[in-house]
Amino acid sequence: MNSPLNSVVYFQIGPVPITQAILTTWGIMLVLVGAALVLTWRLTLRPGKRQAAIELIVDMLDTQIRETTGAEPAPYRAFIGSLFLFILTANWASLLPGIEPPTAKLETDAALALIVFASVIWFGIRGAGVRGYLRSFAAPNILMIPLNILESVTRVFSMFVRLFGNVMSGVFVIGIVASLAGLLVPIPLMALDLLTGLVQAYIFAVLALVFIAATVEDGQPDAEIPLKKKET
C-alpha cells in the first residue's frame, strides 16, 4: 500500500507533474460541467422534476447564503456553490474503485485554502473597498490588527488542515482496513467516509462564506452596524 501522503505522478507537462489528483480533478470538472449542461438543458417556466430539483438546490444555497451573510446571494452563489460541489464530489470520488479523492492531497486542499484566502480579499475589497478591507483588520480596534492579520492566515490554514486531515485519514483508514479485512468490512467505514465528506464540504463552504461575510461586514464605514440586511 502506498502512503496516502505521496502523490503518484503519471506524466509531466513541462515542469508540471500530472498526478492522479490532478487527473481526478479534471475528471470531476468534466463530470460536473457535463452534468450541469445536461441538467440545465432547456429550462422552462414550467419546471419538470429535473429542473425543480436543481432549482431546489440553488434555492437552498441562496437561503443558506442569505441567512449567513444577510446579503443578496447572487455575488457569492457561484463561488460558494461550486466550492461545495467540487469538494463534495472530490470527497465522494473515493467510492470509485482505484480513485483517490483529490482532497486527500495537500496540493488540492492548499489550493482550495489559497482560493478562499484570495476570495476573502477579493470580496472584501469589492464589498467595502480597499480602505474598508484594510479597516476590517482594525476591528474591533487597532490593537487587534496583528492578531487579525495572523487570524486571516491561520483560519484558512486551519480549513486546509481540517479538510486534508479528515479526508486523508478516511482514505488511510479505509485503505488499512481493506488491506487487512477484505472487501465487506470497509463498507461501514466507507459510509462513514461519505458522511464525513459531506460534512467537510459543508463546513469548508460555510466557513469560506463566513470569512467573506465577516470581512465585508468589518470593512463597512460604521462597523458597528451589521452588514446583514433585513429580509423583505
Partner: peptide, 24 residues
C-alpha cells in the same frame, strides 16, 4: 500541483457559474 489545482478549481468555478448557477 498546487497552482494547477488552484487553476482547475477557479476554472471549474467559472464554468459552473456560466453553465449552472446563472442559468438556474
Amino acid at each position: 500541483g498546487l497552482g494547477l489545482q488552484a487553476a482547475n478549481v477557479l476554472i471549474l468555478i467559472w464554468l459552473l457559474s456560466r453553465v449552472f448557477w446563472r442559468p438556474v
